[in-house]
């Protein structure tokens, strides 16, 4: 499997994603630079976390007009699997590849900690290796991860099976105490209607090795291999 990791100026999780993809999953990785107009021929695209363009103006707002995102959009429209993690999720929202928007965390502070998330659908290429209702421990690290959609859009997300992860307690209950940032309906990750584009705030690449005390996140990357 060949994966493109997109690098914007200010991305800072691209090396982490590369490490997990290459050394844990065994994929081969190529980098795509924000100024590139074309993607290399790949099976999957990863938009990593960080502060692309310094998050100036608004997280992800400048990245959406970079040349590479046109190529990523085309890849997504043709059904290619795309995952945006943290800042990558914010970019996908700004591009309109995913519905919704991000608000500041309700604490108004950056939050870095472990959270529990429950898999709400296995239909995406990134969750096909998980079972419905499975709870993973994944860390978050963001200041703008308070996901928002209006009531009508939320209904549409539910009707179309687009909610992929919800923040829960360790035993899988999506209550307010388990919500780290104020996201509506405890949403931690959503996909597009077709299911091939996933955006999520938690960092699976930070929880993919035993040496870090937590390897549950590796399943997301491993799923892609099984899907292809």
């Amino acid at each position: 499997m060949k994966v493109a990791v997109v690098v914007f100026p200010g991305s800072n999780c691209e090396r982490d994603c590369e490490h997990v993809l290459e050394n844990v999953i065994g994929a081969s990785v190529v980098r795509a630079w924000h100024r590139d107009h074309e993607l290399p021929k790949v099976d999957c695209v990863v938009l990593p976390g960080g502060f692309s363009y310094g998050d100036y103006l608004r997280a992800g707002a400048v990245s959406k007009i970079s040349p590479i995102m046109k190529a990523v959009s085309e890849f997504a429209f043709s059904g290619g699997p795309v995952i945006g993690i943290c800042n990558g999720f914010q970019v996908l929202l700004e591009c309109g590849l995913l519905p919704g928007a991000m608000l500041r965390n309700r604490s108004l502070r950056f939050v870095c900690k472990d959270t529990f998330v429950r898999c709400a659908t296995e239909r995406t290429p990134f969750t096909s290796g998980l079972s419905l209702g499975e709870v993973l421990k994944l860390p978050i690290a963001h200041a703008e991860g308070n996901y928002y959609v209006d009531a009508e859009e939320l209904r549409a997300l539910q009707d179309n099976d687009q909610i992929v992860f919800q923040y829960t307690s360790g035993d899988g209950e999506a209550n307010d105490g388990a919500n780290p940032n104020g996201s509506i309906f405890n949403i931690a990750g959503v996909c597009n209607r077709a299911g091939n584009v996933l955006g999520m705030m938690p960092h699976p690449e930070r929880a993919a090795e035993d040496v870090l005390g937590n390897s549950g996140g590796a399943a997301l990357f491993a799923s892609i291999i099984h899907t292809l």
Binding site: D16, C112, R206, L212
Partner: peptide, 14 residues
């Protein structure tokens, strides 16, 4: 305090 610091980026923090 340390929850406001990204203490995991770099996937090295054991």
């Amino acid at each position: 305090v340390y929850k406001q610091f990204d203490h995991m980026v770099g996937i090295g923090t054991v």
